[in-house]
Each structure stands twice: as structure tokens, then as C-alpha cells.
């Protein structure tokens, strides 16, 4: 593994810069934060945020174009040399993946069912959508599986994706839902976005929402993207990142 140092005004900017420089999506970067950076006082003592990104040798900047980097970034986790070599030759599909990708929704559903069984949860899994693959868990009393603000559901989704990625060598991006929680949450967030946009416009003041995970912030941004009288952006870092709705 090689490492590359990238700086920016904030950690987010450094990540964005690293992502475009290396052609690897920001959510797939393997990075470590060296310095969070600080604004200083009146610009005095300001320090740039610095991150160190780990890159596969084949992906070092200048040696690869964005597109192949994206493909090659996947087998980086599997550590199956022959497979990684095949994928890096630039032909996903010709690298003899262990499963047919058409089976992916069923494969994902089977994995989730087995996982729920091992967790002692009595529930059924339905494939709600094939693209993107969306699984919905149906059963009684699934609050425990959803957790506060959907945190347990997110953990479940994360693990399902890690396992599928490891076993198939493909990044499938499976969405895991339970009792339609994510659907309901999306409607709720859209409603919230509209109400808070009205408030921002009425009081002519920015409205700051509660901290939310990335996909929830995206729903807010999308809901108000076409809105005539407000604009949105996000502030804060990590778990504290929140959307601000500002009247135009």
C-alpha cells in the first residue's frame, strides 16, 4: 500500500480533493485524518486539514484514470490475488466472479435471512426492488432491528454489503429496510424539509436541522433542490453534520 497526503481547508474538502485526484468515490477512500484543521483567529494560526489516503500501488495518482480505479478499488478488500489481477486487467465479468450478478438480489436476501435467523429474529425478507437492490424485512416487533434513528438498521446494511462485497468481489450497494422504515422516514423528511423551508422563508432566517446521516441529508437537499426561495447546505463534521436551509 502506498499513501498520499492530501490537504484542504476542512477535512471534507481534503476528502473531496483526494477523491477527484485519485478517481475513487469519497465513500470508498481508505483514509486517516492527520489534522482536523482550524480556522485560527481572524485567519491567524489557521491550519489546513490533512488526511493520509492509502492507495493500492496500481492506483497511485497519475498512473490510473478514474474509471479503472473505480473497478480496481473493489477487489482491494478481497485479497484474492488472481481475482484482483483479473479485475485490474480491466474486465469485470471476465474475472470469473464467484456468482452471477443477476442472482445478486436473491443472494443478498438469502444472506440477510440467515443473518436474522442467527440473531434470533423471526422475520421474512422480501426483495422490494432490484435496482438498486432493496431488501425489506417483514415481521413483528422489529423496532429492535431498526434502533434509534435507524442506527441498527444501518449497521445491518453495512455488514450485509461488506459480506457480499467480500464474497462476490463486486460492490452491490444493497439497501436494507425493515417494516418500510426507510420509506416512511423518507416521506417524513420530505415533509420536514418543506415545513422548515416555509419557516426559513417566513422568518427570513436560516433554519438548522438536527444532525443526520448522509443519505438523510441527501433526501433534504434533493427535496429542496428545485425550491424557488431557499437554498441548502450542510455544516459540521461526522455525526454532527446537519443541513442548513437559507432563504434566498
Amino acid at each position: 500500500m502506498e499513501t498520499v497526503e492530501v490537504t484542504g481547508k476542512t477535512v471534507d474538502e481534503a476528502i473531496a480533493a483526494a477523491s477527484s485526484k485519485l478517481g475513487i468515490p469519497a465513500d470508498r477512500l481508505d483514509y486517516r485524518i492527520v489534522s482536523e484543521g482550524s480556522k485560527g483567529i481572524l485567519g491567524i494560526g489557521a491550519e489546513e486539514a490533512k488526511i493520509i489516503v492509502s492507495v493500492e500501488p496500481a492506483l497511485a495518482p497519475g498512473e490510473s484514470k478514474p474509471a479503472p480505479a473505480r473497478v480496481a478499488a473493489v477487489p482491494a478488500r478481497t485479497e484474492a490475488p488472481e481475482e484482483a489481477a483479473a479485475e485490474q486487467a480491466g474486465a469485470p465479468g471476465e474475472g470469473a466472479p464467484r456468482v452471477q450478478i443477476e442472482d445478486a438480489p436473491d443472494l443478498a436476501a438469502d444472506l440477510l435471512e440467515e443473518l436474522l435467523d442467527k440473531m434470533g429474529i423471526d422475520a421474512e425478507v422480501e426483495v422490494r426492488e432490484e435496482d438498486p437492490i432493496t431488501l425489506n424485512v417483514i415481521g413483528d416487533d422489529l423496532g429492535i432491528l431498526i434502533g434509534r434513528r435507524g442506527e441498527t438498521l444501518s449497521a445491518l446494511q453495512f455488514i450485509v454489503n461488506q459480506i457480499l462485497n467480500h464474497q462476490t468481489g463486486h460492490w452491490l450497494s444493497v439497501i436494507v429496510d425493515a417494516e418500510d422504515y426507510r420509506l416512511r422516514r423518507e416521506e417524513q423528511l420530505k415533509g420536514l424539509a418543506r415545513r422548515m423551508a416555509d419557516r426559513a422563508r417566513y422568518y427570513r432566517q436560516p433554519v438548522t436541522l438536527e444532525p443526520m446521516p448522509p443519505h438523510e441529508r441527501r433526501i433534504i437537499h434533493m427535496a429542496l433542490a428545485e425550491h424557488g426561495s431557499v437554498v441548502t447546505h450542510s455544516i459540521g463534521e461526522g455525526d454532527e453534520r446537519r443541513v442548513v436551509i437559507t432563504p434566498k
Binding site: L115, A155, F158
Partner: peptide, 23 residues
């Protein structure tokens, strides 16, 4: 692989273990 970037995998494992234990 079981710890993950910034401990994400380990955190997810703990979170699922908690569900199982609570059950």
C-alpha cells in the same frame, strides 16, 4: 476486515450482537 475503516465493521458487529443479546 473485522475492524474496518475507523472501526466501522467492529461497531456494526457490536450493534448486531446487542440485538441478539437483548433478544
Amino acid at each position: 476486515k473485522v475492524i474496518g475503516k475507523q472501526g466501522r465493521t467492529a461497531r456494526a458487529l457490536r450493534s448486531l450482537l446487542k440485538v441478539s443479546a437483548t433478544k
